[in-house]
Nucleic acid binder design. Structure first.
Lengths: 348, 348
DNA sequence: ACACTCCTTGACATCGTTGTCAAACGAGTC
DNA sequence: GACTCGTTTGACAACGATGTCAAGGAGTGT
């Protein structure tokens, strides 16, 4: 094989570089990996050959032989990559990984525990260096195998069950209680609860926060709907409450898609300025709606950053007892949560 | 190494399975890959050993040795993985890939041509089987190398320049012209144009469509602003037009983030029911705004599906002259584009 | 000149798996 | 029994790159 043919080779290998530079493959490897112990003249010849051939290292081959077997790729097991929370997590992970020349894979679980397991397996078969997991399953003891194998894991949004692992969570109870207390402070006593699937840990905690805030004011929950998972379901369920014999004067919606559905139900009845609503989690354009929507907001980008930092610290060899990091929520007052209720406004 | 120690081994290899089953590694490989020519008794022993050891094939090792070197991973070079258009593309790619046990990597380019090239290189070093590219660069001739190397490519949203490759595009000119004609039909003559970076091919085409629609009615463009890339920039620029000596009665906004900025400018001046607006591309909750926003909508999920199908057909060995697929836009009438202009409503 | 030390270099095995090809075995036929 | 054919099996090299370790050369000191 002559020099012209080497130039034309679609995927030049490290051996091709070695041949062109007149050195051994190991010397090329030393240059590529920045190892000391290569003479300047040989290093120069290698670098010229790399440029001429446009050699690109093959990371899959390198990872197989290299100590530690790193693939420079990490994985995210997300709820649905196209929803804003998931895509913000993805972007945060990507930004931290990019600074370390690490790429990110992701897959969408759609609340299916079997899909979660299959994704973890698929990523492990591709030797992902670490994984961020938004779990759908109710027990993650099956992941012990990854932990034992040395793959760092971090759970986001929902805590791990049956496994000792790092987690980045939002204080769902406090956030929910804050929203409900805000509605109470604006005179509401009959505050409906619209919640997500009870199988989801975060939904259960938000319901807990709702109940606690009501209880603090001696209020009993009357209108409670669980297991809503889409905007459409929420619109239908809330519509039924609004059309019923004793409609609530306010609503705490425990998830942003559900908030959107509840708003549609209010608007379709012309009640958007009459019934107060506060939602858990923000969503794009909430401030442009009429009335603008009061929410308790979480910050998925920041959660993703915290999670990525944990993964990379573990990949860097740091070792510590698995810990849970709580990221604060923030009440954003915009209008929908301040519509006065029959009890009048009182100090929060 | 005895059987108990094998069970405890974090990453059992195909050799471990072979040893436990009492066969050669090649026989295990035959069973794992569904190759014929293994006796039922040996296949059974292999399957039992696989279950006992929880053996998972190592795809990086397999891809290195296997004919064709497939990694069962494809890559998406997107504008910003956290924006809805990009994340819908990703999700579409993922859904098609999932059916074929192929995983997806992505990276965000943020309109930076250098970042685009770096991402392509990073994916190639990881042996991505194929790539979907939303290009930021103004010339993609550098990708000839991937094409020659046999990696299928498909361009989405913006056509390839300097390279012959498949593309999935929206008919930006027709879509823009439709929106503008709609505004004209509602009596508007002074229709502002708010557009994205002129370096972006789709922005240029939408401007072309805007001009053509005006020209069809003998209207000259008066208020034209290019190179807006954020909501904030759009709000500022449109605000200046609205506050100026001769404000436009309507606006064609050529990108959804820009539409959102324009709406903020209108609302902050109480003009949202006075000045008509039609935007290019839909966004979540456009129908819940006041007035609800008239848009020309594209369908990124469908674009992603079409692109994924093309990639997988090429990966399956099909060969055809690179083609461009146009996905239609759709005018969605909601209110903001129907505010009457000084010329009265006339038939479209 | 000889011995010792340090630096550079390259031979060769390795990583986990698959492709190639030959050997062994069993069944059927003459 | 000898021969042929088909099936099963496994030895071994290969993939692209890195880890290990020994050899060779240059420089220094006695």
């Amino acid at each position: 094989m002559d020099s012209a043919a080497q130039v034309a080779r679609a995927r030049p290998t490290l051996r091709d570089v070695a041949q062109l530079a007149g050195v051994s493959p190991k010397t090329v490897s030393r240059v590529v990996n920045g190892e000391p112990g290569v003479s300047p003249s040989k290093a120069g010849a290698v670098e010229r050959a790399i440029r001429q051939l446009e050699y690109r290292p093959n990371i899959t081959a390198s990872s197989l032989r290299r100590a530690g077997g790193r693939t420079a790729a990490i994985a995210a097991v997300l709820e649905d990559v196209s929803n804003p929370f998931s895509s913000a997590l993805y972007r945060a992970l990507e930004d931290v990984a990019h600074a370390r020349d690490v790429m990110v894979f992701a897959g969408s679980v759609e609340e299916d525990p079997d899909r979660e397991r299959a994704l973890v397996r698929a990523f492990a078969m591709r030797q992902a260096d670490a994984m961020l997991i938004v779990p759908a399953s109710d027990n993650q003891a099956y992941l012990t195998r990854e932990v034992v194998g040395g793959t760092p894991l971090v759970f986001v949004d929902r805590p791990p069950v049956g496994l000792h692992a790092d987690a980045v969570l939002v204080d769902n109870e406090t956030g929910a209680a804050d929203a409900v207390r805000h509605l109470v402070a604006h005179g509401h006593r009959d505050i409906a609860y619209l919640g997500d699937l009870r199988t989801i840990a975060t939904a259960r905690r938000r319901f807990q926060g709702y109940k606690e805030a009501l209880s603090d004011h001696g209020i009993r929950p009357v209108h409670v709907v669980h297991d809503l998972h889409t905007s459409e379901a929420a619109a239908t369920a809330f519509g039924a409450l609004l059309d019923g014999p004793s409609a609530p004067t306010a609503c705490f919606s425990a998830q942003n898609l559900i908030t959107i559905g509840a708003i549609r139900a209010l608007r379709s009845r012309g009640l958007q300025h009459r019934v107060a609503i506060a939602g858990f989690d923000d969503f794009p354009l909430a401030d442009l709606l009429e009335p603008a929507v009061t929410v308790v907001s979480q910050d998925p980008y920041r959660m993703g950053r915290v999670a990525a930092d944990l993964l990379f610290r573990r990949l860097d060899g740091e070792d510590w007892e698995p810990t849970t990091h709580l990221v604060d929520t923030r009440l954003i007052v915009r209008g929908s949560g301040e519509i006065a209720g029959p009890g009048g406004v009182r100090s929060a």
